[in-house]
């Protein structure tokens, strides 16, 4: 292979990599009335319908299919990306009742997080807070909930001298870590209410997962939040806030 060919191939390969790794826009072309989300120029493909099924196929693409590594999942090909995912959360959660700063108390609240996807591989739902400790007011805060082992605590327990903030996920898709056997977490297959408490901080934690598409209506994971100031703790007064991020990732 001579030098010209080598240079040409190298430049082309570089261009190919750049083009293929450029983030996809929400559409690939548009007119005054329409936008085309995605396309594929090949030699075959069509939409077929029967009374029971709809089939869309594309022929002629090279290098399609699903590829996985430890860090990434690649769905290559025109039809591969033909799925959607949605997530809905409340605007805000107000925990009640107010907590007396001197004598202590407990406040609770919950958020319904609905995730729906047509991705055949399902989804994984993650939770994290914008900072740590999560529940803060100026320089004051509730500490992140302290779990007594590597698994979530079946019962919420804090020291009387502490104040802490944590969560417990509930729903049909919660992962094994948050399931219980009526006595402990990360064992059994039950989902007892207000059990299996964990901390929420600035690192992401998976809480729900499916291995199949659950449809656009989605499935609700309820995040129970709890904050407590112990009877021997003096908690500064005012409005505390945590910013919670929910991320649904296609499997």
């Amino acid at each position: 292979m001579n030098k010209l060919l080598l240079v040409t191939i190298s430049v082309s390969a570089l261009l190919a990599v750049i083009v293929s790794s450029w983030p996809a826009f929400a559409y690939v072309m548009q007119s005054s009335n329409y936008r085309l989300q995605q396309d594929s120029v090949n030699f075959g493909g069509a939409r077929g319908e029967s009374a029971s099924y709809v089939l869309e196929d594309t022929a002629g693409e090279v290098g399609t299919g699903r590829g996985e590594s430890d860090s990434y999942i690649l769905n290559a090909g025109y039809q591969q990306a033909d799925w959607v995912m949605s997530i809905s959360v409340p605007v805000s959660v107000g925990m009640t009742p107010v907590i007396p700063g001197i004598t202590g108390g407990t406040a609770t609240g919950s958020a319904a997080v609905v995730v729906g996807t047509t991705n055949q591989g399902g989804y994984t739902l993650y939770i994290n807070a914008s900072g740590t400790p999560a529940m803060r007011k100026d320089s004051n805060s509730f500490a992140n909930y302290t779990v007594s082992s590597t698994d979530p605590d079946f019962d919420w327990v804090i020291l009387n001298s502490d104040s802490e903030f944590g969560f417990s996920p509930e729903g049909p898709d919660i992962i094994q870590k948050y399931m219980d056997d009526g006595d402990a977490c990360n064992t059994g297959s039950s989902d007892a209410s207000d059990k299996c408490w964990d901390s929420v901080d600035d690192s992401v934690k998976s809480i729900s997962q499916t291995s199949y598409g659950n449809g656009l209506i989605g499935t609700t994971t309820t995040i129970k939040f709890r904050a407590e100031s112990g009877t021997e703790n003096m908690q500064s007064s005012g409005a505390y806030q945590a910013v919670i991020t929910m991320t649904a990732v296609a499997n």
């Binding site: 805000s92 107000g94 925990m95 009640t96 908690q235 005012g238 409005a239 505390y240 919670i244 929910m246």
Partner: peptide
């Protein structure tokens, strides 16, 4: 897909 919300309480 990512979504944020706030959780608040009062002392």
């Amino acid at each position: 897909s990512t979504a944020n919300f706030t959780v608040g309480l009062r002392v």
